[in-house]
Amino acid sequence: MVVLSSSRHALWRCVFSLLLLVHSAVAYSVISDDTLRALPRPGDDFDIHTGKLLSPILIPRVPGTPGSTAVLNHFNDFFQTSLPDWKIEFQNSTSKTPVSGDKEVPFVNFIAYRDPPWASKGDVGRLTLVAHYDSKYSPEGFIGAIDSAAPCAMIMHAMRSIDAALTKKWTEMGARGHSNLDLDEHTGIQVLFLDGEEAFQTWTDTDSLYGARSLAETWEDSYHPVMSNFKTELSSITLFVLLDLLGAKSPTIRSHFPTTHWAYQNMGKLENRLRELGELRSAPPHEEKAKRNEIRWLVDVEASERHVTSRGGISDDHLPFMHRGVEILHLIDFNSGSGFPKVWHTMEDTGENLDGPTVEDWSMLVTAFAAEWMELDGFFETTPSARSADLHSRKTEL
Rank of each mutant, 00 (worst) to 15 (best):
M1Q: 10
V2A: 03
R8E: 10
A10R: 11
W12R: 15
S17Q: 14
L19Q: 14
L20A: 12
I31C: 09
D33K: 13
P40Y: 08
P42T: 00
P42W: 04
H49M: 12
G51Q: 10
K52I: 10
L54K: 11
I57G: 08
P60S: 14
P63I: 07
P63G: 10
P66D: 13
S68M: 08
L72T: 02
H74E: 08
F75T: 14
N76W: 00
N76F: 03
D77Q: 13
S82W: 08
L83V: 00
D85T: 02
D85P: 00
W86R: 12
W86G: 12
F90E: 07
T94F: 08
S95V: 03
G101W: 01
E104M: 13
F107P: 06
F110P: 11
F110A: 14
F110K: 11
D115M: 15
T128N: 05
A131D: 06
A131R: 06
D134V: 00
S138V: 01
F142R: 05
I143F: 06
S148Y: 07
C152L: 10
M154W: 07
R160Q: 15
K169G: 09
D182T: 06
E185N: 14
Q190F: 11
Q190G: 09
F200Q: 05
Q201W: 00
T206S: 15
D207S: 04
Y210L: 11
T218V: 05
P225L: 00
M227F: 15
S236P: 05
S236Y: 04
I237G: 09
T238F: 02
T238N: 11
L239G: 07
L245R: 02
L246I: 14
P251V: 03
S255I: 04
H256L: 07
P258I: 04
N266Y: 07
G268I: 01
G268Q: 02
L270E: 10
N272W: 02
A283E: 04
E287S: 12
W297T: 11
V299A: 03
D300C: 05
A303R: 05
H307I: 00
S310P: 05
G313F: 13
D317Q: 02
H318A: 05
F321I: 02
F321W: 03
M322A: 15
H323R: 13
L329N: 06
L329I: 05
H330A: 03
L331A: 03
I332Y: 07
N335F: 00
S338L: 02
P341A: 02
V343A: 02
T346S: 13
E348F: 03
D349M: 04
T350H: 06
N353R: 04
L354P: 01
W362Y: 15
S363R: 02
T367C: 00
F369P: 07
A371N: 05
W373L: 08
E375N: 12
S388I: 01
L391K: 09
S393K: 12
R394L: 13
R394M: 13
T396L: 15
